[in-house]
Simulated assay, not measured.
Amino acid sequence: MRPTNTSVFGAVRLGHLVIETNRFTDWRRFGTDAIGMHHDDLDTGLTRFRLDDQECRFLLRRGPAEDVVATGWHVDDHSAFERIEARVRAQGVPCAEGTAEEAAQRGVERLLRFPGPKGITQEIYTTPVLSPEPLRMLASRWVTGDAGMGHVAITSTRPALTRAYFGTVFDARLTDCIDETISGVKLKIRFLRVNERHHSIAVAAVRGLPIDPVRTRVQHLNIQAATLDDLARSYDRVHELGFDMALSIGQHTNDKELSYYARTPSGFEWEVGWNPLVIDETTWEPSTHQGISVWGHTPVGQTIVDKLGQFRLAARSLAHPEKTVRALSGAGAPDD
């Protein structure tokens, strides 16, 4: 087995997501007509969205979860792939090679799957399959490339374990933190990077309280628009087609990204962003920002009933311990 101690930082990027849903009609309208992506229907139970020449960026499969169920990471080469595999197997965590059918659905080669935090399966692959079919989408293009296609944000009652997991598996680095108070609830958000993108993973926790106010495993996911015009036009389409807007357009304090948040048919949020800063590894130092936004990002249409619903979900989470992968998270890691 290959050595596990050589860093894979910079050789990994967010490549695809798998979403389980029974709301295919709504998702096609949301992804294609509102957000502006290309879509392909494989059969009655499988749909794919494209952002670029890769065959698949989002795989929607039929099922009851209404959530992201797997995160796919594009690994530069076989050597880095084998280092990650060796790390996971060395801790006794089960790995499963993806079947030819699973790899084909995702448009990838050499697929490996293993458990991740909050029950989200982590997938790694080496080579994406490129489609010769021209893109049919309302956006001019999306920013993907060597830094990946965006990021995923999760809420966690065990943030230190979650951070340690991504540090162990992908050599993720802490970019910065945000302290925010929303409706009297204090949040601390940690932003992790695996390459020059400001963050590929964000981990939010309620400070001092072991509760999770979000029903879904993923709180939101992000994709990056190529132009400000693309961002504005998709924002208008979300409104015009009647999809819920979670947060209006605003600018974040830490990565300076201009963005808005729409609510997907499955309930988690979808952030469309533009022009985030790029990390310079020679000069970057982590810091803590007060508040999520410089301006904007105001809640849209949230009622007292919605807030009460969130508190009920948070209370319910106390009875259901969060899934962690202790072997890859450092069994002694304190929660911070």
Rank of each mutant, 00 (worst) to 15 (best):
N5T: 08
T6F: 04
R13Y: 00
R13K: 13
H16V: 00
E20G: 01
N22G: 08
D33L: 10
D43Q: 07
D43V: 08
T44E: 10
L46H: 04
R48L: 11
R48W: 04
R50I: 06
D53M: 09
R57H: 15
R62H: 13
R62V: 05
D67L: 01
A70E: 14
A70W: 02
V75A: 00
D77W: 07
H78E: 15
E109Q: 14
K118C: 12
G119W: 06
P132A: 13
V143T: 13
H151Q: 01
R158I: 06
P159K: 02
A160I: 08
R163H: 15
T175A: 12
T175I: 03
D176S: 08
E180S: 14
K186D: 15
I189W: 02
I189R: 00
H198E: 10
H199R: 11
A202Q: 09
V206R: 10
R207F: 08
D212V: 11
R215F: 13
T216S: 15
V218P: 08
L221R: 03
A226C: 05
L228V: 14
D230I: 12
S234R: 05
S234G: 06
D236K: 09
H239K: 11
G242Q: 04
G242M: 04
F243T: 10
A246V: 07
I249C: 01
Q251W: 00
H252R: 10
T253E: 11
D255T: 03
K256Q: 14
L258Y: 07
A262F: 07
T264N: 05
T264S: 12
T264H: 03
E271Y: 06
W274S: 06
V278W: 07
E281S: 13
E281N: 12
Q290E: 15
S293L: 00
T303H: 01
I304C: 00
K307P: 00
L313D: 14
A315N: 14
A315G: 15
L318H: 11
P321W: 05
A327M: 06
